[in-house]
Write a protein that binds this DNA or RNA. Structure first.
Lengths: 218, 218
DNA sequence: TTGTTGATTTCGCAA
DNA sequence: TTGCGAAGTCAACAA
């Protein structure tokens, strides 16, 4: 990894055109050849960059980074304040926990949280417009489509509504009810869901994980 | 801006949990206090970070960065290979060109691409639930609402559907047809749109820009 | 402050 | 490879 602090201007021409006027910035060159330009403040993201795989041509005062797709990053350098290279080695990678997939998995193992006597038919139940997160049968064997979200938004209600509309065209399943389950449900989403006869359930991630952990103890 | 190259492990606890095992990485501290951790390869984005505003507590071998929302980034440092601080000053900011607004502008100037004899009524046609990108009249003077996207997704179809539903309540306009125009249209979005009687049109940005450029030549 | 929408979204998974 | 949906989405802008 190479770190350069320099007074520079940057132009990107590719999927769009972007221009950074002359100023002092950090230019970061990774081992895979990708180039990132960072300012000191403003957004925490890089204001300009070129994603790998890409090729770099360096001449005094001017860098040119070209992508396979014809995208181009051109850096004009007026003054270099710092330039150092460091050997970092490979990174073992990031482990994430607590995302939607995990939430879905936890709920699939605990469908009784939705109602006594409920059972899971299958996860990722396929339809023509995409998979339903959980398909269940309630205590009276009625079909229920469950949409799981980390944050329950209007989009999620729309998504579940589309599934329900489609599933209810199938005489073998109909009537299919809907449950919208999320860690947080925004008021607007809740209103819309309930207006459409969809039940809203707030999930407690820690409690669900706790139950799961308990289960593994015995 | 402070640059630290160090052998470290990183833990984030907040909206989710994430862990980076011990390895050599770049730790970048910006003037606003935000902290970014970069590996040398893999994804070109930062694998772990804390966005501003945040507060940093540094003790030998351990950093703790805390957010207002109770999110926490904990960096355990085993060995420091480099540590330097640089004064960058303020950044003038980024200028972009060629995004959706541009696409809409181009299509507005070339509504004949949608059909012979079509004319533009106006861009950003106002409704109670937001502006319709383009309102047109077709060859038979029928009203047509056009939604322009760079990537045509189901969300865009839903958006246009809401506009059409509202517009068709107005006897002075009704019937209003819909056109969904985008550089790329995803199959599921196309299915949904056509199921609702909305015409899908794929836009060729380069060709549209080319025509525009030609136009300026004469 | 809150909500909405676009993004060079990026990223990961699965068909 | 391509398609599709989630993201600690982020960030800009309007209400």
């Amino acid at each position: 990894m190479r770190l350069v602090i320099a007074r520079c201007s940057v132009d990107y021409v590719g999927r769009l055109s972007a221009h950074l006027p002359m100023a002092t910035r950090l230019i970061l060159v990774k081992a895979d050849g990708s180039v990132l330009v960072h300012s000191d403040g403003g957004s925490y993201q890089q204001p300009n960059w070129m994603s790998p795989p890409c090729r770099q041509e360096e001449s005094p005062g001017s860098w040119r980074v070209v992508n396979k797709g014809g995208e181009e990053l051109r850096i004009t350098i007026e003054d270099v304040l710092h330039d150092s290279t460091h050997e970092l080695g490979i990174d073992p990678g990031l482990k994430k926990d607590g995302v939607e997939a995990h939430l879905q998995e936890l709920l699939a193992a605990q469908v009784h949280l939705l109602g006594m006597g409920w059972r899971l038919v299958r996860r990722e139940y396929p339809t023509a417009i995409g998979p339903v997160d959980l398909m269940c049968r309630d205590e009276g064997s009625g079909a229920v489509a469950v949409e799981v979200k980390r944050r329950g938004d209007i989009d999620g209600v729309e998504q579940l509504t589309r599934y329900l509309e489609l599933l209810n065209r199938d005489p073998a399943l109909s009537p299919v009810r809907g449950v919208f389950a999320a860690q947080e449900i925004r008021p607007q989403a809740r209103v819309l869901a309930e207006d459409r006869g969809i039940r809203c359930v707030t999930l407690n991630y820690d409690a669900m994980r706790g139950i799961e952990l308990e289960g593994t103890l015995f």
